[in-house]
Amino acid sequence: MQKLNIKKYISDGLLIVFSVLFALFINKIAERMDMQTRKETALTSIRSELYRNSGVIAMWNEKHGAIQNRLDSLITGKNDSLMKVMLQNDYLDLGILTNQQSLIEAVLSDTAWESAKAAGIVSQFDFDTTQKLTNVYKMQTVLMDDTVRSILDLYFSRESHKMDDMDATLFQFHLRFHELVGQEILMKQLYDEAITAID
């Protein structure tokens, strides 16, 4: 009788251990599937964000390239009529350089990328994808926070509106727009690489 009780206890114990291990196994599979779903959702959102940002950069590049060309023609003296228009004011009118359009009409987004990082999903990406995405978003930050800001800081500087020193001011703008246009070309390449890595 005691042997029967011991066998029953052992079989019950084994059944409990098996049940716990099976439940943990099922839970682990469910967690993996949930993480895979979250990873795919994050990559889809990031891909959409990159496509949108790439379109914004293409628009910026066209507009900023035209501004760079205007500045080039002013600095080299090839556009005296535009220089005369600029010198009619007692301040630097940026609208003359931008063809009366705003400098930045759409902003670059990083919401999907930041959300994926905050949720810890980025750790699920392969190394190449993570590297490409990190590069593109870091460069995007440099472009927005450093290059565009330097142009705005120059424009809002009191020194830039001294009309007797217009040549030096235009040269400074030309340098900054040259850098901006170059970075926009690089950004387009980085977006393409990152999208390819995701796909």
Rank of each mutant, 00 (worst) to 15 (best):
L97K: 09
M59D: 14
T76C: 00
M83P: 03
K78S: 10
E105D: 02
T76P: 00
S102G: 10
L82I: 06
T98H: 15
G77W: 05
S73M: 10
N69I: 03
S102H: 05
A58W: 07
V107K: 06
W60C: 07
D80Q: 12
L82C: 07
E62W: 02
A66H: 05
S102I: 11
G77A: 13
K78F: 08
I67H: 04
E62F: 03
D93V: 11
Q100C: 02
N69T: 08
L82V: 05
Q88K: 14
E62H: 04
N79H: 07
G95W: 14
E62R: 05
Q101C: 06
L71R: 03
V85L: 11
A66P: 01
L87K: 15
T76A: 01
R70P: 02
D93R: 14
I104F: 05
D90L: 11
D80E: 11
G95D: 09
D93H: 12
L103H: 12
L103V: 14
L82N: 08
Q100L: 04
L92Y: 12
V85N: 07
T111M: 09
I75S: 14
L108M: 07
S73Q: 09
S102D: 08
Q68I: 00
L94H: 09
V107H: 05
I67V: 12
G65C: 01
D80C: 01
M86K: 05
K78E: 11
S102C: 03
G95V: 11
S81E: 12
Q100Y: 08
M83F: 14
A58R: 13
L82Y: 08
W60N: 13
S109C: 05
S102N: 06
G65E: 01
S81Q: 10
L97M: 08
Q68C: 03
L82H: 09
L74H: 01
D72G: 10
D80F: 02
M59L: 12
N99S: 11
G65Y: 04
I67A: 06
M59T: 15
L74A: 01
D110I: 00
E62C: 00
L87V: 10
N99E: 06
Y91Q: 13
L71H: 01
L97C: 07
S109P: 02
Q101A: 13
I96C: 07
L74P: 01
D72P: 01
L94T: 06
T76G: 00
I75A: 15
S109F: 11
